[in-house]
Amino acid sequence: MIKLSNLHYSYGDKEILKGLDLEIAKGRFCAVMGANGCGKSTLLKCIAGLNTAKGGRISLDGKDLAAYSTRELAQQLSLVQQQSHTDMEFSAFEIVLMGRNPYQKRLQNESEQDWKIVEECMKMTNTWGLRFSKPHEMSGGELQRVMIARALAQKTPVMLLDEPTSNLDIAHQMEIMQLLCDINANERKTILIVVHDMNLAYHYCQELLLLKSGKALYYGPMEEGLTPERIKEVFGVEAEIYQKNIFFRK
């Protein structure tokens, strides 16, 4: 369980998160949405331990986040970011193998088990065929699947994803979301994902966290949360929901 209480964060003078209270139960698949600059990515980085909160606290399974070592945290949380680095010369296999780092001793070689887990995760994400490819030889969707495979190889109970589907075409966006849905269902992982596409989130995610200027406007089931009124309040656009599809008016 992830618990945030009165979480504050600011970049310099600019306050981004202004007192966030939230409890996300185990095994949920939750979309984090909100207008640009409302603190979605900042929140994700705070939970991932990359940003240190300026006030309030975050706890993971009842233990304060700061009490985890970097290594322990990497066994609890995995992170997939928006931009993956394409200038690396490592093969997809080696990249996924990096996900095993939190379980290896520093001078230890990868074990049989590590290799098996990597193969399993790559097969699950349909990237096994790409194992010898380098990032610059892959398409955006393929690379993102490799990054998800790496996060899977970390064997963490919680997965955090920051706009993994931006820059992808609709078919690949749906493919990634379906993959995450399956991971959520089969592996019982808690998944927090920042998405921009409302329809995509609406179709695939059970829960919604709606942020507005650094605070949680809504947290709960997706269907009840994403209403035309709230869309208007957060994004300032007129929307209509018809047969489980969101339409926007010009």
Binding site: L50, T70, S78, H85, I95, M98, G99, N101, R106
Partner: peptide, 23 residues
């Protein structure tokens, strides 16, 4: 030599390296 595995992870970027358990 002792930190050469960490060096590999640093190549993936500071934030990624940290999320993979590198101090």
């Amino acid at each position: 030599l002792f930190y050469s595995k960490d060096l590999n992870l640093l190549l993936a970027g500071s934030e990624t390296a940290k999320s993979l358990g590198v101090e």
